[in-house]
Write a protein that binds this DNA or RNA. Structure first.
Lengths: 209, 209
DNA sequence: TAGATTGTTAATCGATTAACAATC
DNA sequence: TAGATTGTTAATCGATTAACAATC
């Protein structure tokens, strides 16, 4: 088994947070940091930080700590934020357009190259310079441009079928905003579900009655 | 210690998903279900489902299973989706407007009663019938309407200060979309962070290089 | 009653924390 | 060298899974 495959989800989900905090430290001119100091800032244990980082290599120096800029860069590479994976978005409703306009895909490993919708009212318009195409052009577009990732901002009911079509067009990864648990049987396809509704209901629970 | 307080986050985060699946079953006319059948549909173990549900009460019937409609309703009550907590949104940019237009707050325990921004271009407009007010009216509005929850769709830098003001105006819960880990020291305030960037970077990691 | 399935206790597994030898 | 802090192993804690008696 590849080392990378043995990393637990718990660790993976903390990586972007490390990346963010290290970026901040760098911006504030801090050049080195100990796991203890970082743990205090992030609200973790120093032990956990050292364990997490050691999943990927020996980034620290004993008796000294970690170099902020170097560690930031290393984690960036681990996350793959330096890549430019061709990405399409399906669904240009409120949420889709906002995500397209709001996210900096190019600093997170992706490049948004096309948006698709079947609503004639939005087709032909552009969001952040990305043109909204007619959904019927999807297959042709994929054959030509070979995107590997798709962002799904479509209604719940449409999700499963569209995802399957997209896989047949060569899509290997989904960022799914629809209120539906996309679970793909193909093992080579990666899915990240964003369930805003679930998040809000979790807040509702925690507020209490 | 209150029973409710002893429930782990792992369990809490699964509740909305149970709620969703049970709603589906109900819609499909299925009136009862065993933990084994539900586990197969949800991709969990039957054991986990029984453990989770037993945190809140004995909803099942031995030898028989669970009544779908009744369980759906019970979980809804546990989540508090029947409540109408007065909620405001701060920040009516792309993301804020999309969230305001896209989410069904009233089926998730909340009622959006006002949106605030300082951009004159959007003040006075409405999203889904909710008026966008000038931010300078925030304190007055809170004194009058007494909202208890706030949705933050503002830039990273502004988040901490605005959150603290809002707490002084009586806000008890935050749904935070800013790229910033809002961690409030007041124990009576609840925070749910939605980190879309982190989610996207997690996907980037999992795709690999 | 017999079969089914829960509620619940016990066993296992995995993740976090603590401890400390290695070493800068 | 002495002090500091890592990398890493061991101990603890919590969450998941298995097992089974209770009971519908």
């Amino acid at each position: 088994m590849n080392k990378r495959d043995s990393i637990s989800m718990s660790v993976i989900r903390r990586l972007p947070r490390y990346y963010r905090f290290l970026g901040d430290l760098k911006k504030n001119g801090i050049t080195r940091i100990s796991s203890r100091e970082l743990s205090a800032r992030m609200g973790l244990t120093a032990s956990q930080i050292r364990q997490d980082l050691n999943c990927f290599g020996d980034f620290g120096q004993q008796g000294y700590g970690y170099m902020v800029e170097q560690l930031h860069e290393e984690i960036g590479k681990i996350l793959g934020v330096d890549l430019k994976r061709k990405t399409i978005m399906i669904g240009a409703g409120n949420l889709g357009r906002a995500v397209a306009a709001h996210m900096s895909f190019n600093t997170k490993g992706f490049e948004l190259i096309g948006i698709f919708d079947k609503n004639p009212l939005v087709i032909g318009k552009a969001v952040n310079g990305i043109i909204i195409h007619d959904s019927c052009e999807l297959e042709e577009f994929c054959n030509k441009e070979k995107p590997i990732a798709a962002i799904l901002c479509i209604p719940r009911e449409a999700t499963k079928d569209i995802a399957e079509s997209l896989i047949s067009y060569g899509i290997k990864a989904f960022w799914n905003f629809s209120h539906y648990d996309l679970a793909i049987s193909h093992p080579e396809v990666t899915v990240e579900n964003v369930h805003l509704s679930d998040s809000l209901m979790t807040l509702s629970y925690r507020i209490g009655r």
